[in-house]
């Protein structure tokens, strides 16, 4: 039982990170149909930015805030300078642009920062909390808490605010949204900005656990994308469930099956899920438009 609980803790911590990245994917996808492969790099900017600003003598909370703002600026620039000028291009071309952006951001990051791994001090110390024979780091609670808070905030934003409704309207039908007076350009910029913020916040809270480096974004993008897809692309709840599911699968895969093949365990389950639910867990059964 203690072992099981330990694996659950591990899976939920890692899964919460994936969920946060997946939420970022979801938001941009909803607004623009684009899979933003630079999403993971926002996580890196959040983490690395905070590390270097803190090292420059800025207090940690302020450093984190500045890093998040920096990521939002990068997100807005990505939209303004790369996505917006390519308006009308096919989704594959847009995805290619985000892949180029991801390479570019990594290239700049290794110049601005460095190529070493870095860490941040845990927000509430390193003393593990004992729970039912297993242990949990306080930082894990931070990660899960922040993931939950961001999910709720995003949900409320999308469901309850006018701006959020405009964003969903844009996602559903861009032309119709434009006809009823939604400024699609601003909505898209908003999606990129908020996604960048979510990614960067994730980066700040997970760096004390996972460590960070200029190129950690690739892995986060890979896992976050998988999480968003298994949950059902475009569904915030799906993103969270998908992220936690992959995190738990990896933990149980490593704990009970084979630590060498834990990633394979996760992907086999993803393939099985998609086999039975071709649009992910929460994707429903939309019929393809002719």
């Amino acid at each position: 039982m203690a072992e099981f609980l330990q694996l659950v803790f591990s899976g939920l911590t890692v899964g919460a990170v994936y969920a946060l990245v997946a939420l970022g994917f979801t938001l941009i996808y909803n607004a623009s149909d684009v899979i933003n492969f630079a999403q993971g790099d926002f996580v890196m900017i959040g983490g690395m930015g905070t590390v270097f600003l803190a090292a420059a003598g800025i207090a940690l909370p302020l450093a984190a805030l500045m890093a998040i703002v920096a990521a939002v600026i990068v997100g807005l620039l990505l939209h303004r300078l790369a996505i917006e000028p390519a308006r009308g291009a096919s989704p594959v071309a847009l995805i290619m642009i985000t892949i180029g952006a991801s390479i570019f951001i990594k290239g700049v990051a290794q110049l601005v920062f460095d190529k070493q791994f870095h860490s941040l001090p845990a927000f509430s110390g390193d003393a593990p909390i004992a729970l039912g024979g297993a242990t949990l780091l306080p930082q894990s609670l931070w990660v899960m808490g922040v993931a939950l808070a961001l999910f709720v905030a995003l949900y409320l934003f999308l469901e309850k605010t006018l701006l959020g409704k405009a964003l969903r309207a844009t996602a559903a039908n861009r032309l119709a949204a434009r006809l009823v007076g939604v400024n699609v350009t601003i909505i898209l910029a908003l999606a990129f900005g908020v996604s960048a913020a979510i990614g960067a916040i994730a980066g700040v809270v997970v760096t004390p656990i996972t460590l960070t480096r200029y190129d950690v974004g690739t892995l986060f993008a890979l896992k976050g994308f998988a999480a968003a897809m298994v949950g059902g692309m475009g569904h915030p709840l799906g993103a969270v469930v998908g992220g936690l599911l992959i995190g738990l699968l990896e933990a149980f895969g490593a704990g009970y099956i084979s630590s060498t093949y834990k990633d394979a365990v996760a992907f086999v389950v993803i393939l099985l899920v998609l086999f039975f639910l071709p649009r992910g867990l929460f994707g429903g059964r939309t019929v393809e438009r002719v």
Partner: peptide
């Protein structure tokens, strides 16, 4: 005899096995 991937961010499952 446990393993972890080069980019893994949590090794408690493997270490837990060793612990037990």
């Amino acid at each position: 005899d446990e393993n972890y991937g080069a980019t893994d961010s949590d090794m408690t499952p493997q270490l837990n096995k060793i612990k037990n």
